[in-house]
Write a protein that binds this DNA or RNA. Sequence first.
RNA 1: GUGGGUAUAGUUCAGUGGCAGAACGCCAGACUGUGGCUCUGGAUGUCGUGGGUUCGACCCCCACUACCCACC
Length: 378
Amino acid sequence: MAVTFNLEKTAGSARLGRLTTPHGEIETPAFMPVGTVASVKAVPQDTLEELGAQIILGNTYHLYLRPGHELIRSMGGLHRFMSWKRSILTDSGGFQVFSLSELRKITEEGVNFRSHLDGSSHLFTPERSMEIQIALGADIIMAFDECTEYPADESRTRSSMEMTLRWAKRSKEYFEANKHQVPWAEHLPGKTQSLFGIVQGGMYPHLRRESAERTVELDFPGYAIGGLSVGEPRERTQEMIAAALQVLPKDKPRYVMGVGYPDEITRYAAMGVDMMDCVLPTRAARHGLLFTSEGRLNIKNTRFAQDQGPVDPKCACKVCARYSRAYLRHLFVAGEPLAAVLNTVHNLAFYLDTMRSVRHAIQLGDISGFLSGSAPNA
RNA sequence: GUGGGUAUAGUUCAGUGGCAGAACGCCAGACUGUGGCUCUGGAUGUCGUGGGUUCGACCCCCACUACCCACC
């Protein structure tokens, strides 16, 4: 059995749901912290559990290069290896190929790239990505796609989209034939991974719709909208999400990849998106940027040197309950690793609480507060 | 006490007889399916003090002061 998705309630376009994977349940709309190398940077797994994270991301590209997917398979899979009992989603490596563009060569077969670690040469194909993702054993794995660069003209966008569709078909065929090899097959009898398809189509609404239609024809248990937040204006992002959502089936989870700021994830959730992931809360935290109910705050600023208040007076997280802005600033300026830990815990708490409040609003049937333009964190 | 050396940004130090420099630090900004505690900007000076040479001195000369090293 793959994932199941139960739609419990709607409010306008927004959806309150429950996604069940072999490793647990995820209340949606959900924000998924990114843990690229089998680690949500700076945050131990028990803290992630306390924060209420129900699913985290891992990355095929990074884990393949180090420590290697076969090693992780031999350790019982990614869950056991990193001691994370809840759900995991792995990205296919398609985006890394895009973001490491100077080191790659793309052909119909797949992508030849050079390792950022040692310069060695590797070939990723849809089949290879599936093989690796099956070995890692995440609950949800992603089709190998090509993230269309921005800007791209219509003809380039279409040919990129067509290749993603061909790769999606190859991904699915390889996955269906080999999914029984997942490392926890015996441990969780009858349960399988789920492969999600990815909608591309650049900045062309009609291509987004076509990509969505043709991806749905391939029949996946969930659909992602990729190729966004690649430098386009935010209105475009929203427009492309809306175009794809028009087509995607209502009874399957919809996942927008790689977004966003707090005001963006709430707006997309209000539009009907069920899942989102983003490095922003974790990366920004390590760079001293904290998200609060009153907007963004750069903790390294001198004005916080003697500020005895919490990061966010309205935040219920352990960091805000215990530590002052002055102390967090000191830790950051001193280069203490604890600064990254505390800042990341706060930012993730803020993101996860934000999604909780969206779910609560859907439950109450009023999401008006999340639909419109006020963007304190923009 | 004698001899030698050094003195330039907050710090460590380059530097040239003709607009005062770097690194780090400091100040601020950025970060959207995470290579990279990263990236981008910005501010900062009685060039130890006093005199002299020179059209012009941070630079050459003299004295002084402080610090460092060696010797007594």
